[in-house]
Design a protein around this nucleic acid. Sequence first.
DNA 1: GCAAAGATTTGCT
DNA 2: GCAAATCTTTGCC
Length: 244
Amino acid sequence: MPDRRPTEPPLPTLTSFDRACLAGDPLDAARALVGAYLVREAGDDVRVGRIVEVEAYVGTGDAASHARFGPTDRNRVMWGEPGRAYVYLVYGMYDCLNVVVAPAGQPAAVLVRAVEPIAGIEPMRAARLAHAGARRHAWTDTRREAEAIRLGGLDPPRVTSGPGAVAAAFSIGRTDTGTDLCAPDGSLRLAVSPADFPTEVVATPRVGIAYAAEPWRSIAWRFVDPMSASLSGPAAASRRRSRA
DNA sequence: GCAAAGATTTGCT
DNA sequence: GCAAATCTTTGCC
């Protein structure tokens, strides 16, 4: 029986995320976010993840972007200041965190698809369990216990591999839309570790947008750290299977 | 006012 | 490997 209790290494020194890195070209902003950190801090509950997978959604012309409908009550924040959060509900169940990028007036956002847990893995598991409970109809004690066991058995990199999983693990919901993620002491914020070795970034097509016309469907606007064990999606899943 | 589909995850065949 | 779960938003009547 492996001991899964968190003997977590000391946190790297984190500093606030420079809004200027998000205010220029959206694809540059997306690359800058890979290797940066996502922090959720509330008292003793400190959860930190290193961002390893993002996607850029750029402008009203991008046939995969929510901005393609023009500004609506849901997506209006995409037209606002860079560095704010845009959280939307997908498939009726999962919230997804985006970082608004590009100068105000230009609608663009970067979807955070996966992070690597750095600190707070147990509160992340607990938050995922709470999210599952809140969203399930037939949520009996038996079902809850089974889900707790399943989540407890997940390797840490798998607890936050996928946009819905990231939002659940960091207790992010649509009410977080508009939060300034560059505020140095916000409860939910971005950060960087100046001591980190630069992250290798690989570009691939975006996931889950088969409905979009070309060239948007195939354009390589998904950016990943290829060394990460937390990557989401079918490609990563098949790689994991073949390695096993 | 109603029908349809979605930037997903999980379970079961 | 496929389909369910679940509900908001959009689009069309």
